[in-house]
Computed example of a mutant assay.
Amino acid sequence: MMCALADLHNPIVHWFRNHPSPPSAIVSDMFVGWTHHLARHLGIRRYAFFPSGAFAISFIYSLWREMPQRENYGDDNEMVGFPRVPSSPFYPWWQLSPVFRSYVKGDPNSEFIRDSFLANGSSYGLVFNSFGGLEGAYLEYLKKELGNDRVWSIGPVLPSDDVGPNERGRSSSTSISEILSWLDTCQDHSVVYVCFGSQAVLTNKQMKELALGLEQSGVKFILAVKGATKGHVEEDYGSIPLGFEDRVAGRGLVIKGWAPQVLILRHRAVCAFLTHCGWNSTLESIVAGTPMLAWPMSADQFINASLLVDQLDVAIRVCEGAETVLDSNDLAQHLAKITSEKWTKRRARAVALGKAAMDAITEGGSSFNELGDIVMHLSEKCTT
């Protein structure tokens, strides 16, 4: 997809050259880094927007710049790290970006993708869906590495509270009113919300152990289930164990399809979020002041989990990997911790971080001001 989108280069140049009032800048996603070269060709500025966090991008940028290689080619657990990045994170090879791991030196597509990621760092400015109170050290690191201060954090950028499945383009087995009515019957901080985002689909083995762990734990929960989609074998993915919903009736609510995640996380009854640690889910949980049970599966999720667990202590790590099966007994033990004093302290840290997030996007806050600064830059009629 990244390579295919580059075919838009010439049509965009043609449109630009024939437009009576062409743009003075390009703001584009991190996966179309080639638009940096397009902007230079057109004599305008390019701003790279990152839906991922600054910590993750600091690491990913270092990957493509330094191109580390395994000493033992067959060892997927060989550790890779970059001491210059704050906190000096190290990860096993199998947890690195799959796009990076698939790189083949000299292959035209691989070289194009590497150049695109490096071009992000060469762009006029970098814009992050994050905020200083969350990732200040990494925002400053990127400024130092890139040699300029044109690194802005404008987040958290969140969906509206009242956005429903029709607006999001997905169906749901349960209405928003039913979900909120059920939550209203629950005590404060008594419900665990379980959801793995819009992309991940659990195998039936994973689903079986997850359901059994929830059942054994005795906690109240909401489980959002994504069924098998194109590319998944329906018999092997996304199936809820037979009889599970009946056995947990009243204590557990199963949502098939889209779930109003923002509303759920912000409800007083929710005390924890079992999540894949995608950046959008991470920010939504932080804003809600809800601590997390981390099960990173791919891409930047392992790095996000490190931030949440090892640095901020607003989460605990319960599992890792898209194919790993979380044992039901282990899950039940993890869920038992959400009533502990440590979890109460973890929730207090999450609430404080949520307040910092809202302060950042409130008038006069850091993200509010940085967004204003970007607008000033974009309004300038100037070239690269």
Rank of each mutant, 00 (worst) to 15 (best):
M1A: 13
M1Q: 14
A4E: 15
A4W: 07
L5P: 00
W15E: 13
W15H: 08
H19A: 14
P23Q: 10
P23C: 07
I26W: 04
V27W: 10
V32W: 01
V32K: 00
W34V: 07
H36K: 12
Y47A: 10
F50E: 02
F50W: 05
A54W: 02
I57T: 09
S58I: 05
F59L: 05
V80M: 10
S88H: 13
P92R: 12
L96Y: 05
P98W: 02
V99K: 06
V99E: 02
V104N: 06
P108W: 02
P108K: 07
S116C: 14
G121L: 05
G121K: 01
L126E: 04
N129Y: 05
N129I: 03
G132E: 15
G136F: 03
A137G: 10
Y141K: 11
L142R: 06
K144D: 14
E145T: 15
G147R: 08
S153A: 15
V157D: 02
L158K: 03
V163A: 14
N166E: 09
R168H: 11
G169C: 11
S172P: 05
S173Y: 09
I176T: 12
L180I: 14
W182D: 08
L183G: 04
S190G: 06
V191Q: 03
G197C: 05
Q199V: 12
A200P: 00
V201I: 06
K205P: 00
A211P: 01
G213T: 01
Q216M: 13
S217P: 03
T229H: 01
K230H: 10
K230D: 13
G231A: 06
H232A: 04
E235Q: 08
D236P: 01
I240M: 09
L242A: 12
D246N: 15
L253F: 12
K256L: 14
V262R: 13
V262L: 13
A269H: 12
V270E: 02
A272W: 09
A272P: 14
F273W: 11
L274I: 11
H276E: 12
W279Y: 11
W279L: 10
E284P: 05
V287S: 07
V287H: 04
P291S: 08
M292H: 05
A294H: 08
M297Q: 15
S298Y: 15
A299C: 14
D310N: 15
V314E: 04
V318D: 09
V325N: 10
D330M: 14
A336S: 14
R346C: 07
R346W: 01
R347D: 03
G365M: 01
E370N: 06
E370M: 08
L371I: 00
D373F: 00
D373A: 12
S379T: 10
T383A: 11
T384G: 00
